[in-house]
Design a protein around this nucleic acid. Structure first.
Lengths: 244, 244
DNA sequence: GAGTGGTCTAGACCACCCC
DNA sequence: GGGTGGTCTAGACCACTCT
């Protein structure tokens, strides 16, 4: 590949390499957890120098799409890896101890996208969707009630039994069973009063303050796939965030 | 500077350059908003190649400590620049419109650090601290009540009149008036019920759910400088966060 | 045109991992 | 020892900004 000096709007070579690598990832040429070819091999394949491939991989690694391991190779990041299991879960014990959550799934059903969900998922209002609920418990105490929605055709044949049986996060499940990898998410947090439904499942009094976490999760190409609302008890727990 | 191949634990050259650059920043050799020397000049000064300086600056830029502007130079980031004015404020209108907040400061007083504050700021419990409060309003509606604490000796002579008169964020004020630049922060969010004090200042009913945002803000060298708790109304507003 | 950051190359060598 | 990513260099050229 030659540097295209005459392109109307200049696009660096390494960005083009990024796009090519992403296309291979979308196409499934390399699967989550697997190694991609070495930098030298890729440089030869794309007819650029190692440094240019390196810069492309650097950026994909900083976006947590690839993972470098010195001496071993570059790997496709995966929600199934231990360190990435609950990568998007920011609600943790104040004490800092690592508690393993226990999931309870229920309420799988078909429905129609309301205005909010449709906008979030890029669907037409009224489009068919699937949804289910989940209670996440830490140390036997229910802490988070999630309501999870996605387009009806997104995860065909998904069952709660499978989810329940699957040891791991929901995103690890999507990835392993349906080959759909979530790469980033946007969240909006609010404080709300618990309604009767949430109160019952979290075993608290109605009206108690809850942290509401709305999330849109995206796969490759910034395609929104899943919308969820989590209602979180923040008693001994908090949502952690670093700003820089 | 030669590559130190015999150091017990290997430290790349560009990390050493990062440290040297940071030291110059701490020492005030280049002030917020000013340009630092060109990459070539720095390369000569540190006796390394331009590429090595470049990698060091790249990382400092990604940490928002420096700011690159192609064709112009590399600048020390500043909370006083328009795009950085409310860099750490994540609570924004759901609509996405940019509302300019209006600040009202009050309640400046001396006090003693309680256990939480002391731990956050790295002080001994009971150490002398200063604190003040602030109500932030958007479109004339009070939305956030902040309680802001720092070590008594940190900002000597700070007055509310100055703060009130100063057009800009609190961090811009610290930077401009005291030369203390905040470079990163950690936040912990919870949902709480409004107490009487908060209810009165936010003009809501006691017991209403509020988003509580605890923040520790750090300056160079990961030194904690300010602790604050914000109580936020999330009616038409939300705390936005991107996960990747 | 001069100066700045931004890209790209080619080659050398180092640190790390595994056989 | 051979392969991988990680660092460092020297030099060329491009894109952007200001004068």
């Amino acid at each position: 590949m030659k540097k295209s000096a005459t392109t109307p709007s200049f696009r660096p070579l390494y960005e083009q390499i990024k796009i090519l690598l992403t296309q291979s990832l979308v196409a499934g040429e390399w699967k989550p957890g697997e190694a991609i070819p070495s930098e030298m091999d890729l440089a030869e394949r794309f007819r650029v120098s190692q440094g240019t491939v390196r810069k492309a991989i650097d950026e994909l690694a900083s976006e947590h799409i690839l993972m470098r391991r010195q001496g071993k190779g570059t790997f496709v990041a995966s929600h199934s890896e231990p360190s990435y299991q609950y990568r998007f879960l920011r609600v943790t014990p104040d004490s800092g101890e690592k508690l393993h959550p226990k999931n309870l799934f229920f309420g799988l059903e078909r429905g129609k996208a309301n205005a909010d969900t449709a906008r979030a998922l890029g669907l037409k209002p009224g489009s068919p969707v699937m949804q289910f609920k989940r209670v996440m418990s830490f140390a036997g105490r229910p802490m988070i009630l999630d309501d999870i929605v996605f387009a009806a055709g997104q995860f065909p044949g998904l069952t709660l039994a499978e989810l329940e049986e699957f040891a791991g996060s929901v995103y690890s499940f999507y990835e392993t069973v349906f080959g759909v990898r979530m790469i980033r998410a946007e969240e909006r947090l609010r404080a709300v009063a618990a309604d009767g439904f949430a109160a019952a499942h979290l075993k608290i009094a109605p009206g108690a303050p809850l942290l509401s976490v709305d999330r849109i999760a995206y796969t490759y190409g910034d395609k929104p796939v899943e919308w969820r609302r989590g209602l979180c008890l923040t008693d001994g727990f908090s949502y952690y965030n670093e700003l820089s």
